[in-house]
Simulated scan of single mutants.
Amino acid sequence: MENYPLVVLPIDDKDIEKTLAIAIDKKIDMVELRIDQFSNLDIGYVVEKAKLVKKYEMGMIATVRSKSEGGSDIPDEIRMKIFEAVVEYADILDVELTSKSINKKVVELAKDEGKLSLVSYHDFEKTPENEEIQEIIDASAQLGADIIKYAFKINSIEDIRRLMCITAKNSHRKLVAIGMGELGKITRVAGFFFGSVLTYTYIGRAFAPGQIEAGKLIEELKFYGLRS
């Protein structure tokens, strides 16, 4: 990973070229191709959009998010076929820890193709206890994840303290630590001081609660000396 925080923009297939042009102008580092939000899941169509991202020479995380973690109801066998089709164009494949029937396959696919794997976990209601967060980190590491992402709903200041502390404790790994919701916004910048390597933003419409708009996020990172 780069030495500075990487800013990731989730996108679907709507107005994709316009969005990519804005992303480049705002100096966003990567896009997260949210294939689960596409209007068409035909393999040829998905590959066409992945190729388009690479034409703009942007880094790409490809994911087909499961319904239980904020995505769509797509059968695992279809999700796996999509991962196999887009791995050539992606830099990182993102699969959920809870997607037990395919997560190991996706991690191995990424490794075989010389790409990075990101194993993710989302809880849209709460921040779990420390022991559970550590179990999530350890289980993701055992799968062979190059990057471990966990995103939790922040309901109190204490949640922020715990999330950042356990991230610092595990900072020898490549982590993405996100606190969702209004109260969690601070983690999308402060997380980098505790070991988080990516943050997610939006242009126009947020994909997750608490994301900070791209222009504002870049300014925040500059203000705290995290971007030049």
Rank of each mutant, 00 (worst) to 15 (best):
M1T: 12
E2N: 14
N3D: 12
N3K: 14
Y4D: 03
Y4M: 09
P5G: 05
P5C: 08
V7T: 14
V7A: 06
I11N: 07
A21H: 08
I28N: 07
V31L: 08
E32W: 04
S39D: 10
L41Y: 08
G44T: 02
E48L: 06
K49Q: 13
E57G: 10
G59T: 02
G59P: 00
G59F: 10
M60I: 12
A62P: 04
V64R: 02
G70V: 00
S72H: 13
S72A: 14
S72I: 04
I74E: 00
I74Q: 01
I82W: 06
E84Y: 11
E84G: 02
A85P: 00
L93I: 09
D94T: 01
S101C: 07
D112T: 13
D112E: 15
G114I: 02
K115I: 11
K115A: 13
V119C: 09
P128D: 03
E129G: 13
E131Q: 14
E131H: 13
I133L: 11
I133A: 09
E135Q: 14
E135A: 10
I136W: 01
D146P: 11
I148V: 15
K149V: 05
E158C: 01
I160R: 02
R162M: 12
L163R: 11
L163G: 04
C165E: 15
I166W: 07
N170W: 06
L175P: 03
V176Q: 06
A177D: 03
I178L: 13
I178P: 00
M180L: 15
E182T: 05
L183T: 04
I186C: 13
V189T: 12
S196I: 08
L198K: 05
L198E: 06
L198Y: 15
Y200F: 15
T201S: 14
T201L: 00
Y202P: 08
I203F: 03
P209L: 02
I212F: 04
A214M: 07
G215Q: 10
E219V: 10
K222M: 12
Y224S: 08
G225L: 03
R227H: 15
